[in-house]
Simulated scan of single mutants.
Amino acid sequence: MLYCLDCEFNGFGGELISLALSGEAGELYLVRPQDELNAMDTHDWVAEHVLPLLSLPDALPTVLPLVRFGRAIQAFLASDPAPTVIADWPEDLMHLMQCLIIAPGQMVKVPELSLRLVQVSAYPSEIRHAVQHNALWDARALRHAVLG
């Protein structure tokens, strides 16, 4: 099955803040807890445009420490024998891959996973109430742009 991925992170090359997968089999939306976010030297733009949008009525996250993101992704993908993850930005794929690594030389067990990088604009989106810079809404908008 197909899943569209979006991540929010603390500026270019910065730490992961949130990760979302939106696909045919459902959605996963993970956000780091407030104490982890507070420990970051947050970029002004991120503080203004991303952090206020982490939790919205139509995008309620599962709040987990970053070290538990990999297990949550593992559980989400467990029933799909061959998931394909689509992203529109390379750094999103990088963050996903980093979440799967749980210790030196160890990764969570995931099905045979395919990755696709597409160059498409998810915004402006025709999705009513879409909120740019919220990982779940951005994953939904990408899904709409790619799959219609």
Rank of each mutant, 00 (worst) to 15 (best):
H49K: 04
D35Q: 15
I86P: 00
D80M: 05
P90Y: 14
S22F: 12
I102A: 12
S121E: 14
F69D: 04
L60V: 09
L21D: 00
D44F: 09
L93C: 05
D58H: 11
V110D: 13
L53I: 07
V85T: 01
I86Q: 02
L96F: 09
I127Q: 15
P81K: 05
D92S: 08
A75N: 15
M40R: 13
L54Q: 08
P65F: 09
G23R: 00
E112R: 10
C99F: 00
A78G: 06
C99S: 12
A72Q: 12
M94G: 03
E24F: 13
I101S: 14
V108M: 11
R68V: 03
Y29K: 02
W45L: 13
V46R: 15
P111V: 00
D88C: 02
E126V: 02
L19E: 10
H95F: 10
Y29R: 02
M97W: 11
S55R: 11
A82W: 15
I127Y: 05
P65G: 10
G70N: 04
G70Q: 07
V85G: 03
S125E: 12
D92C: 07
L30R: 04
L56F: 03
P81Y: 08
Y123H: 05
L113W: 11
L96S: 07
L96W: 01
L37D: 04
C99Q: 04
E27K: 07
T62D: 12
L77K: 03
A47V: 03
A72N: 04
K109Y: 10
Y29S: 07
L37P: 00
S121N: 04
L56D: 03
L19Y: 05
H43T: 04
M94P: 04
V50A: 12
M94T: 07
S55K: 12
L53N: 14
I102Y: 05
L100M: 08
H49E: 07
Y29V: 03
L60Y: 05
H49Y: 13
V85P: 06
E112I: 00
L51D: 05
L56A: 01
A82F: 15
A39M: 11
M107L: 03
R128N: 01
L115Y: 15
V85D: 01
P65M: 14
P83Q: 01
S125Q: 07
E126R: 06
M107Q: 15
L53H: 09
V118L: 12
S114Q: 14
L113R: 04
I73K: 02
D92R: 02
L96H: 01
G26T: 01
L117C: 07
C99L: 08
L19S: 01
A75D: 07
S22N: 04
Q98H: 03
C99R: 05
V118W: 02
A72D: 06
P83F: 05
V50S: 14
W89H: 13
I101Q: 15
V120M: 04
L30P: 01
S79N: 08
S22A: 10
M97V: 11
R116C: 09
N38S: 12
Q106G: 12
L115V: 12
L93H: 00
E91F: 13
L19F: 08
S22E: 13
L77I: 03
